[in-house]
Design a protein around this nucleic acid. Structure first.
Lengths: 195, 195
DNA sequence: TTGTGTATATTCACTAGTCAGTATACATAA
DNA sequence: TTATGTATACTGACTAGTGAATATACACAA
C-alpha cells in the first residue's frame, strides 16, 4: 500500500494538475500524466487505483489553494462588503487574461462527467464549492450583511456563471458585468428596504 | 457533394444530439453516432468532413429550439418583467428534474473544448448565447426596464451559473436562488433609485 | 424501350494509432 | 524476509478517419 504523503504521489498529482487543467480530463491519457511526472505508468498505478481516482486527487489538491486565493483577494481589498465582493471579480478578470487560464477546473470536470453524477471527482467538486460558499457567507456575515447565506449563494452563481460563459465568449466584459451585478445584490442586502 | 437538407444528414444530427447531450462529445465515438443513426461510419463521413464538424452541427441544431423554449416560458407567464424572468428559472427547475437533464449542451461542449478556443462548435455556442442575450434585452426593453442590455447580461450570467453549478451539486435550490437574484436585479432597474 | 453516362449516396474492410489497465520482474530499505 | 517502489513490455478494446467498390436514381440518346 502506498503512502498518502509520498513525494512520488505528489509529483504525480502535480503533473496531473498541469495536464488536466490545460487539456481537460478526457483529453489527457494516464500515459501522458506518467510521462509528465517523469515515471512509468506502472508506478502511477501503484499510487492510484484508477484514472478516476487520480482525477479526484487532482481536484482535491486544488481545494485549499483556490479557497485561499479568493479569500486573499477579498481580504486585501479596501471598502465595504460590496467593494470586497467586486474585488473578487476584478482579480478574476486579471487572472483570465493569462493565456493558460481555462476557467474553473471543478466546473469543467463536472461538465465532462455530467453523465456520471456519482463520480468521486464530482463529490470533491461539490465539497469545494460548498466550502467556498460557506466561507463567503461567514465573511459577509461578519460585515453585518442581511441573510449572508442567501447572498453568498447568489454571488457563487454569478462567479460560476462568468467562469462558464467566459469559455464561450472569451470576453472579460462578462466578468465586469458579473461584478457589478454582485455589488448590486450586496447593496440590496445592506439597504434593508429591498427583499 | 452532399445535400444540406438531406434526410440522412438530419438522421445523423438527431442521433448525434441524443448521444452528445447524454454523454458528452468526448465520450461518444463517431462509430457510436453512426450506429445510433442506423448507417455506417463511411456514410457519416460522406455528410460531415470531421467529428468537429458534426459537433458544430449538433449545437447549431439546438440554437432555435432552445431559444423558442426560453421565449415561450417568458411569454406564457403572468406579471411584470421580474415575474417573467423568474418564470424562466422556475421552468428550468422543472426541466432539471427530468432524469435525462444534463445541463446546457452549449456550456458543456465549451467546457470540454476549453483548450481549443477557436473550435467551430464554440463559435456556434457563442452565437447562440448572444442570440439569447439579444432576445432577452429586447423583451425587457419592451417592458420599460432601464438599461435592458446590461440587465439581460446579468440574467444570462445567473442562468449559466445555475446550469453549471447544478452539474456539481444536483440541488434545484440553486435554481430557485438564481431566480430570486434575477428578480432582485430586474427590480433594481425598475425602481430607478438603484444604479 | 433500351442503353449509356453521371452524380449522389452508401457499404465493407481497413489503417495507424491510442486507451486504461496489468503481468512479470527487479530493485532498495527496514 | 517483507514492504515499498520502479521498470519493461504487453493486452484487448477502442479511436478518428480512409480506400475501393457499389447501389440508386435520373438524365439523355438510339
Amino acid at each position: 500500500m502506498p503512502e498518502a504523503q509520498s513525494p512520488t504521489r505528489k509529483r504525480i498529482v502535480d503533473a496531473a494538475t498541469r495536464l488536466f487543467y490545460a487539456e481537460g480530463i478526457g483529453r489527457v491519457s494516464v500515459d501522458a500524466v506518467a510521462e509528465e511526472a517523469g515515471l512509468t505508468k506502472r508506478t502511477l498505478y501503484y499510487h492510484f487505483k484508477s484514472k478516476d481516482d487520480l482525477i479526484a486527487a487532482y481536484l482535491d489538491g486544488r481545494d485549499q489553494p483556490n479557497l485561499k486565493r479568493m479569500a486573499g483577494w477579498f481580504d486585501a481589498s479596501e471598502g465595504g462588503a460590496d467593494r470586497k465582493v467586486e474585488a473578487i471579480f476584478a482579480n478574476l478578470a486579471k487572472a483570465a487574461h493569462h493565456p493558460k487560464w481555462k476557467g474553473c477546473g471543478f466546473l469543467r470536470t463536472a461538465a465532462e462527467l455530467a453523465s456520471m453524477p456519482g463520480h468521486p471527482a464530482i463529490k470533491v467538486g461539490s465539497r469545494h464549492k460548498s466550502n467556498f460558499e460557506t466561507w463567503l457567507a461567514g465573511a459577509l456575515s461578519v460585515r453585518g450583511v442581511e441573510e449572508p447565506q442567501a447572498l453568498a449563494r447568489e454571488i457563487v452563481l454569478l462567479i460560476d456563471g462568468c467562469f462558464s460563459i467566459m469559455l464561450i465568449h472569451r470576453n472579460p466584459d462578462y466578468i465586469e458585468a458579473a461584478g457589478r451585478a454582485a455589488a448590486t445584490l450586496v447593496r440590496a442586502r445592506i439597504a434593508s428596504d429591498q427583499v
